[in-house]
Amino acid sequence: MIGAYPSVVVRVVSALLSPFILLFGLYIIAHGHYGPGGGFAGGVFVAAAVILPRMTLDEELAYRLAPPWLGPAAGGIGMLLFLAVATVPLALGGDFLDYAMVEIAGVAASRIRYLGILVVEIAVGIAVFGSVVLIFDVLTGKSDA
């Protein structure tokens, strides 16, 4: 499961594919406004891009690319980012999670809600990525959390 896979074909294909899976995951997160996807699906794809090298490449290399502390750290950061975005309108006198209360000069309220959705999707993506990587690392016994 963990460590270099015996077949060189599998190793090379995994090493070539994982950056593109990562890119696709980021695209899914960022493109949620216009197509299927968003934070949940994108976060899973980004996690797949981290898990694939762990299963096929040399152990030292795979964990240098994405160290084991990344899972819990990303989970916490994503959740905190979501909560921070949620409480900003509250501090400005609006409702919880009501992004339209944040007023930026020259930006329409609908545009601010659009940006709020983007930040929320990124936060969800980071949290889901962290959760999946954390579960994988704990199952394979590599977590140092």
């Binding site: 949620g32 216009y34 949620a86 609908s110 809600r113 659009y114 709020g116 969800v124």
Partner: peptide, 21 residues
């Protein structure tokens, strides 16, 4: 409201963002 054509995304992250939280 949100300049978002994908209603699922605007539902999840804006109208019902507390559920997503």
């Amino acid at each position: 409201d949100t300049e978002t054509p994908n209603v699922v995304t605007s539902l999840l992250a804006d109208y019902r963002s507390q559920d997503t939280l």
